[in-house]
């Protein structure tokens, strides 16, 4: 058995390796409108994750044959910086980032009122500057803030958060070690007002009861994230007197 090599992720008192409780999020700070040249932007630090999102557009889509005269097209580019992980990541798109870009674009396409801007494209770029598990949730949260900052009409903000299973227990918001040595990871993105699910993935296995528990926990995390998103957005809208 190789169980001895795996570190103990959760102690007898239910405290995790970074001192959090089972249903506790990592510390989060959000900032909106960080890039001067982008139409909308946001920066999120979520534990050791550092993610920058930028929105350009709506703008003309080229090549022209890809245009859709009934609605705009949303492109989501997820990119990890080579220095974002322990071992240098080979730069450029790979299978994983293309896939994350696709699922996130589908999640956001359900929220943005694309039919208002026919024949155009909305480009969303998410740059992972530092990764520590759960980057697709951070990326999606940042992207929805950046879209709101750009003034693009949308039904609701998108709040995302992950839950998972480590050492046989369901916990909220996995960190890198927990993700690597844990049993399951369940990222979830919702529209907080009606609690509609726009992204749900599962890596690992859970029983039906465990899944329900993890889903409820992730939902609670998403609502917590949503409050922080609203605060960050309202803060960016206020006009300060000092120049």
């Amino acid at each position: 058995m190789s169980t001895k090599e795996i570190p103990k992720l959760i102690d007898d008192k239910g405290i995790r390796i970074d001192g959090r409780k089972k249903d506790e999020l990592r510390p989060i700070s959000m900032e909106v409108g960080v890039l001067a040249r982008a139409d909308g932007s946001a920066y999120i630090e979520w534990g050791d994750n550092k993610v920058l999102a930028a929105v350009y557009g709506p703008r003309q889509l080229h090549p022209k044959f890809m245009q859709d005269p009934t609605k705009a097209i949303l492109h989501f580019i997820y990119n990890m910086a080579p220095f974002s992980v322990d071992e240098r990541k080979r730069p450029g798109p790979d299978r994983r980032s293309v896939e994350i870009g696709k699922v996130c674009a589908e999640a956001l396409s359900n929220v943005v009122l694309l039919e208002k801007y026919p024949n155009t494209v909305i480009d969303v770029f998410v740059e992972i500057l530092q990764a520590d598990a759960g980057t697709r949730c951070v990326g999606l949260t940042a992207a929805s803030l950046a879209l709101a900052d750009a003034g693009i009409p949308m039904k609701d903000l998108v709040a995302a958060c992950a839950a998972g299973k480590i050492d046989g227990e369901i916990v909220l918001d996995l960190k890198k070690e927990e993700d690597n040595y844990g049993e399951c990871d369940l990222p979830l993105a919702i529209l907080p007002r009606k609690k509609e699910v726009v992204l749900l993935q599962m890596d690992g296995s859970l029983t039906k009861e465990e899944f329900q528990e993890a889903f409820d926990l992730a939902l609670k995390g998403c609502l917590e994230i949503y409050e922080k998103q609203k605060q960050a957005l309202l803060k960016s809208m206020e006009v300060s007197e000092d120049s």
Partner: peptide, 8 residues
């Protein structure tokens, strides 16, 4: 009042 997208 300042509002965010999704606010009723």
């Amino acid at each position: 009042q300042l509002v965010c997208p999704g606010q009723v």
